[in-house]
Amino acid sequence: MADHKAQASKDKMDAVSSTVRGRVGIVAIGRNEGNRLIQCLDSLAPLGLPIVYVDSASTDGSPAAAKARSADVLDLDLTIAFTAARARNEGFDRLLSIAPDIEYVQFVDGDCEIEDGWIAAAVDFLDQHSDAAVVCGRRKERYPEASFYNRICDQEWNTDIGQSNACGGDALMRVSALTAVGGYNSGIIAGEEPEMCSRMRSNGLKIWRIDQPMTIHDADMHHFRQWWLRAVRSGFGYAQVWWTTRQVGTALYGRELARAIFWAVVLPLLFLAGAVFFHPLLLLLLPGVYLLQIARMAVKQGAGDGFSWKIATLNIVGKFGESLGIFRFIARMVKGQQGGAIFYK
């Protein structure tokens, strides 16, 4: 069995070497990912590519596990706020210091496993599309059946194939394109990829999603609190990215901001005003409005599926979490505070 695995690993390395060896480097980022990080690095090691693992103060032995798998480990300075964008930037800088001649960089989150064949397919795509800066593929959940929240994530990853406005955390990028825009905005807590991609698109470059398995993700989300914090993080990211991109003329996430504020703030205030100035019973109609919206969304997705009703309900509840994140961003901005990442696991 051991000989079989060794041969499979060698075959995988040989298949990749002819097209990507010396041209691609890897930046993986993580914090307390445990076995997920090990699976991530084990999927990368057979490729024989330079790997930089950036750790955000893990306490589970992640740096040691990465070193044992021949990754160059970078421990982030604890005195500076953690963000995924900062981790990717510092990892990218380290990667270029040890592999200055690479053409492409593959970013991957530490809770993801790279699919066989992805790197070669992504490199081939960028080789054939000189105006493409970024290519990403299909991401799927490792355990979608483990929890309702995991299944939601699995559905979220099922995005359209073709030219896109942005990528996610896992993507292969052209080094020259990333360098030209100055990398990620290290201060952005969530939504750093769309913000960075918007700058690339302003340079006339394109972002693509191709129909190729890319990564297996493990959300490991089993509790409402995790999902709630993720919603808060999203709201903070919407506000921060909108505020950042509006200053350069292409505001992102305006629609998401408007929806969150309308359902969680404006609508309740309207009914409260109606109850105060017209009749108290008007306030009792508010739950009915939310129920109607939930029903509308559930029917659109397939009313006969109980999962559709659960998703629709969480969609409405999530607007309150997103609004909380929006107000957190406003509070930090007013106080002049930068702030770090909002972790949900």
Rank of each mutant, 00 (worst) to 15 (best):
V232W: 00
I119Y: 06
I102S: 11
Y104F: 13
S58C: 03
A64H: 01
W227Q: 04
G340K: 01
G169C: 09
V289I: 11
Q39D: 15
N315S: 15
I311Q: 14
A312Y: 05
M173V: 14
T159A: 15
S186Q: 11
F271E: 00
Q240W: 00
D3L: 13
P46S: 06
R201F: 03
V241Y: 03
A190R: 10
R151N: 13
I216A: 11
L270M: 08
E103N: 13
A331S: 13
A66M: 03
F277E: 07
A132K: 03
L257T: 04
R199H: 05
C197Q: 00
F92Q: 10
T313N: 05
L257C: 08
W243Q: 12
F224Y: 12
S176D: 15
V105K: 03
Y238N: 11
S202M: 14
R69L: 12
Q163F: 11
H129W: 02
A132H: 08
G30N: 00
Q226N: 08
L272S: 11
K12H: 13
W228M: 03
R201Y: 02
M200H: 03
W227C: 05
V73Y: 06
G183E: 01
A303Y: 10
F277I: 10
F224R: 01
V241A: 08
V105R: 01
Y238I: 03
E113M: 14
I114Y: 05
G321M: 02
G249F: 08
D111G: 01
A85T: 03
G302P: 05
L267Y: 02
R332L: 07
L252N: 07
L284V: 09
Y184M: 07
A239F: 04
D93S: 14
R94K: 15
V181P: 04
H217W: 02
A260T: 06
Q7M: 13
E141G: 07
L178A: 06
Q247H: 13
V24G: 07
E192T: 02
C112A: 15
P100V: 12
Q163C: 10
V181A: 05
M1S: 15
A275M: 02
M196S: 07
